[in-house]
Design a protein around this nucleic acid. Structure first.
Lengths: 152, 152
DNA sequence: ACAAAAAAGATTGTATACAATATAATTGCA
DNA sequence: TGCAATTATATTGTATACAATCTTTTTTGT
């Protein structure tokens, strides 16, 4: 029998960190959606484009490591972005296993239309700059620690 | 032309909160996976079971509001949990539109096997109790603020 | 050089998520 | 009372995610 009183029960949703993290991530994506609809990108496509806006060219392996996504997710997503004309996919001549993804001019231009989006979504969180910095640092701390607990 | 120097560029992945949130949520689910595999639950199924372990019975509407999931996600998920024998689904006699979801004995017993999981995953985050509390409160602050910016 | 191992993507299958729509039941109001 | 609007869930379609497997290419060990 588990705790039916108001005491601490680790299986209660509101005693956990994973659940608010899960909901926050989903709800923030929802906040992005109306803005991303305007430039015909999904949230994950937007993440991939952000990497390209920084680097112009990436191969799928590096992109997957940056975004923590595997080829099962990236292959169809990059094909869609190629269809939209925002990038081109081409095998690396030196190593035909690798697929290089490169920004097109159209993809480059899209950056100007995306530039205002983070500034529109950020206020929705309702955090002060210090709180945002604290959250940023806590999340990065978790991300740095997680790999250390493999097979744990 | 956007900032190519090391200056602040809001479109850089590492200048945003949404991206580490997105990755953290995914990676924590990944930490849960080996433990949940042992009790034949996916993460989302586990969330639904946690609500039932607290309340024994919920209707789909309330469950959806608690988990921020709609019927498109919940209907197939609850059918799977019913197939596994962890819950039963039955129309509310007073209001045949509503579907009540109730814990079975088998589902009740599953709680004992799940009880140890949060304690196994929590250390993977690598946060002190104070940091965890800070993160918890920041996330709940965001969740409380987000609805205030509807249509914003 | 050559077979085995490794690496990179692509494919397949399962499970979310959510928008949009459909259906059935209930409520509200003229 | 009767019908329009609302509510609750189900269904359909699209887009992730990821495990497992497959194919192709490259590297490695001998």
């Amino acid at each position: 029998m588990t705790d039916q009183t108001n005491g601490f029960d680790p299986l209660r949703l509101d005693c956990q960190l994973c659940f608010p993290l899960y909901v926050c991530a989903k709800e923030i994506v929802r906040k992005y959606k109306p803005h991303l609809d305007g430039i015909d990108l999904t949230y994950t496509q937007y993440l991939a484009m952000m990497v390209l806006w920084e680097r112009r060219t990436v191969n799928v392996r590096d992109l997957g490591r940056i975004l923590t996504l595997d080829s099962g997710t990236l292959t169809p997503l990059l094909k869609k972005l190629e269809q939209k004309g925002y990038l081109v996919r081409a095998r690396d001549k030196q190593d035909e296993r690798c697929l290089d993804v490169s920004l097109t001019e159209k993809g480059e231009k899209l950056k100007d239309r995306a530039a205002c989006i983070p500034g529109k979504v950020a206020p929705c969180l309702g955090l002060s700059p210090e709180e945002a910095k604290t959250l940023h640092s806590l999340l990065h701390r978790i991300l740095a620690h997680l790999p250390e607990t493999e097979e744990g």
